[in-house]
């Protein structure tokens, strides 16, 4: 009989002992935690002004990699959204604004300086440095965060660590998931299970249809 025991659990970290579950399914969960569970990340940026030393490309790349707290209920994946516009609509994107200037001394701009239109979607940590501004330098931009999947880009990976390891007992595994902060670790696991479920269901249906 299959049992699952939670060995350790916190928002950022969950460790399970899986008994009697086939490795195939457990490994699918591990992989989905990395590549299939959606989370929020900055995807499109409109730069109004950037006089910093970092180029627009680099700035955009850095913003994209900031983990944003994700509300999976409130938003849907852009590809599933009816709006079909490039910048998205309120259902599929969140606007974050960065407006920073260094007046008379060097100033470091942190992720906390991003102002989100939705309080549920904001940088998980406030102290991630984005760029250092020298006096008189200025940055003004609109960043559009969207849901996405880890298989498309690493910035949409909610899990930083996701491992399935053997134990001394051949039928038991440890499944460990660590979150980057966008989703609670447990949530990632549940989502992964859901996705696996849906995929299997879809497959069953496809097989039935074609049979």
């Amino acid at each position: 009989m299959a049992t699952i025991k939670i060995l350790e659990s916190s928002d950022s970290h969950v460790k399970l002992l899986l008994k009697g579950i086939d490795r195939v399914y457990a490994n699918a969960l591990r992989r989905f935690a990395i590549s299939e569970v959606p989370c929020m990340a900055v995807d499109e940026i409109v730069i109004h002004e950037n006089s910093s030393v970092l180029y627009d490309e680099i700035l955009a790349h850095r913003l994209g990699l900031i983990p944003l707290t994700t509300d999976l209920e409130g938003y849907i994946l852009p590809e599933d959204c009816s709006c079909k516009t490039s910048l998205g609509c309120t259902k599929c994107r969140v606007l974050l604004v960065l407006d920073a200037v260094a007046t008379d001394e060097v100033k470091t701009i942190y992720s906390g300086d991003l102002v989100s239109e939705d309080t549920r979607v904001k940088p998980h940590l406030d102290n991630i440095p984005i760029v250092k501004l020298a006096p008189t330098q200025k940055i003004k931009l609109e960043a559009y965060a969207k849901l996405g999947k880890g298989r498309n880009h690493a910035k949409w990976q909610p899990a930083t660590v996701s491992t399935l390891t053997d134990t001394d007992n051949a039928s038991e595994f440890h499944l460990t998931i660590e979150s980057n902060g966008s989703l609670p670790a447990k949530e990632i696991l549940l989502q992964a299970t859901n996705i696996l479920n849906t995929k299997l269901k879809n497959m069953t249906e496809t097989i039935k249809e074609s049979a």
Partner: peptide, 12 residues
């Protein structure tokens, strides 16, 4: 190679 396809250690 995508991360999920890469080998991983015990500690991830």
């Amino acid at each position: 190679v995508n991360q999920e396809d890469m080998p991983y250690t015990e500690s991830g």
